[in-house]
């Protein structure tokens, strides 16, 4: 049984990694077809020469950084408040937001913004994407931080107050530092999910606020293209670096 299991695991890990590996390898191929004709960085040159992609990447970075920072703060405070005393309504809506299909979240926000814009004279833009991304990231952050809170010694804050700290200082000096690794992990999750999101973003982004997934998607819908392989490789490497850095921070 043990051998069979190991063999199976090898196949399963291959299933997880071979597609990504092939994708990366062929981003360095000369030919646009899936036949190896020689090493080349042409597709990367094409990526860096593409101003539309550069602009979209910048938009994606702005959105991801802003929305993950906001949701980290809001989600952490919410998790802490709920941990102190239950708040069934907020907890319920956070869980509901997690089980709501992305497409439904997207169209409901679209409908909401259209309705609001009838009264307030604004249009869709980058900020509507940030508002939407924060809305679905709060739940992720709250769940990750709650998991961390549960491992915390409940006497910790009492000890701080016992030693003379006010409730606010006890939170700031004791609870928050103890939660920091969880908050960093949660913010990173929010950052990646936000950077990667296509479904909701495409519905609530303004005409002049295209994101990188939107550009990739538009090209991919017309079929494969080695330029996308190159961008994908860059994304995989970028995300990988982020995760390794965050692991280092966490272990310190």
């Amino acid at each position: 049984m043990k051998r069979g299991l190991s063999l199976y695991a090898a196949v399963a890990f291959a299933f997880l990694y071979v597609p990504l590996f092939v994708l990366v390898v062929f981003s360095f191929n000369q030919s646009r077809f899936t036949i190896w004709t020689g090493f080349s960085l042409d597709w990367y040159r094409a990526v860096f020469a593409n101003t539309e992609m550069a602009e979209a990447t910048w938009n994606s970075v702005v959105i991801a950084v802003t929305s993950s920072a906001l949701s980290a703060v809001i989600g952490t405070l919410a998790a802490y408040g709920i941990w102190k005393r239950r708040s069934p309504l907020l907890t319920g809506s956070l869980y509901l937001s997690l089980v709501t299909p992305e497409i439904v979240t997207g169209i409901s926000l679209l409908a909401f913004f259209q309705l609001v814009f009838r009264v307030v004279h604004l249009t869709l833009g980058l900020y509507t994407v940030v508002l939407a991304h924060v809305a679905f990231s709060i739940a992720y952050v709250a769940i990750v931080v709650t998991a961390r809170l549960r491992t915390l010694d409940p006497s910790l804050e009492e000890a701080a107050m016992d030693l003379g700290a006010t409730p606010w200082r006890a939170f700031w000096r004791v609870t928050l530092p103890a939660l920091a690794p969880g908050i960093i992990a949660a913010a990173l999750l929010a950052l990646i999910v936000s950077f990667d999101d296509y479904v909701i973003t495409s519905l609530v982004a303004g005409v002049d606020s295209e994101t990188l997934p939107m550009v990739i998607y538009a090209i991919a819908r017309r079929g494969a293209n080695p330029t996308i392989n190159a961008v994908s490789t860059l994304i995989v490497v970028g995300f990988g670096a982020l995760i390794i850095i965050s692991e280092r921070v966490r272990q310190r």
């Binding site: 010694d153 006497s155 910790l156 009492e158 000890a159 701080a160 016992d162 030693l163 004791v174 530092p177 103890a178 920091a180």
Partner: peptide
């Protein structure tokens, strides 16, 4: 001006 030694000690881990 009272201080407690907790059963779990509640030392600040960081």
């Amino acid at each position: 001006n009272v201080s407690t030694v907790f059963q779990s000690y509640a030392l600040f881990p960081h």
